[in-house]
């Protein structure tokens, strides 16, 4: 209404934004990232394998003579509840995600096989996102996690990973580097905190 002064208390949002505006320094320039300064000439496959092992995981090659499902089944002979998002899982899958009422029912999942589109050599991390995750809690709630990754999808540093991810619409995504772990009791490393207790990357 023109001519009538309305006295309104500033909301916290307005308050914070106006204080940030008033108290900030003059605009400083954003630095430019030159990724070449980080190049260390390391062999990608070798470095990736080394780093996955450093963080407590395993790296194996996919056997050409058998399916990934029989290869993984041999790795975990005692597993009862298995699930794979890969095509042709057939009998390997002992649970049907469609039949779940809530993700909590995955509590007893023993082995999960997922595919990753991206691995990072410098830290052994593999990327999983909604595209590969029918249910978000899957890679965390499973006891054992197996991730299939194509060798050519390994990049040297995170700097090369983000431009690839920028092109994809990730509602949720996670870099996973090794099995879950903690060192909260006297700095002794214990593998298997809340998430997966083992992590195997199968390279193909």
């Amino acid at each position: 209404m023109i001519g009538i002064k309305t006295e309104k208390k500033m909301t916290s949002r307005e308050n914070i934004l106006s204080r940030a505006k008033a108290n900030k320094p003059d605009l400083l320039e954003l630095p430019v990232i030159n990724v070449e300064v980080f190049a260390d000439g390391k062999d990608l496959l070798e470095e990736f394998t080394k780093k996955v092992e450093v963080v407590g995981g395993n790296v194996v090659e996919q056997n050409v003579s058998e399916t990934i499902f029989s290869q993984v089944s041999k790795m975990y002979p005692d597993a009862k509840v298995n699930y794979a998002t890969l095509e042709g899982a057939g009998d390997f899958n002992t649970v049907s995600l469609e039949a779940l009422k809530k993700p909590h029912e995955l509590e007893n999942l023993d082995v999960l096989i997922l595919e990753s589109i991206l691995g990072v050599a410098e830290n052994g991390a593999v990327w999983l996102s909604d595209g590969q995750l029918p249910i978000r809690v899957l890679p965390f709630i499973t006891n054992h996690l197996v991730i299939v990754l194509k060798k050519e999808n390994i990049v040297p540093f995170l700097h090369q990973a983000y431009p690839i991810l920028a092109k994809k619409d990730n509602d949720f995504g996670v870099f996973i580097s090794g099995p879950s772990k903690t060192a909260d009791i006297e700095q002794s490393l214990v593998i298997g905190a809340h998430g997966a207790m083992t992590l195997t990357v199968v390279l193909k």
Binding site: I33, S129, L158, A161, N170, D171, F175, S177, S180, G195
Partner: peptide, 24 residues
């Protein structure tokens, strides 16, 4: 790419934390 490279290495010497979860 910059901050996740810096964070865990400075904190515990790990190359990255086990889980770096990107919520959107």
């Amino acid at each position: 790419g910059v901050f996740l490279r810096l964070l865990a290495r400075s904190a515990t010497g790990q190359p990255i934390t086990t889980y770096s979860s990107h919520f959107k």
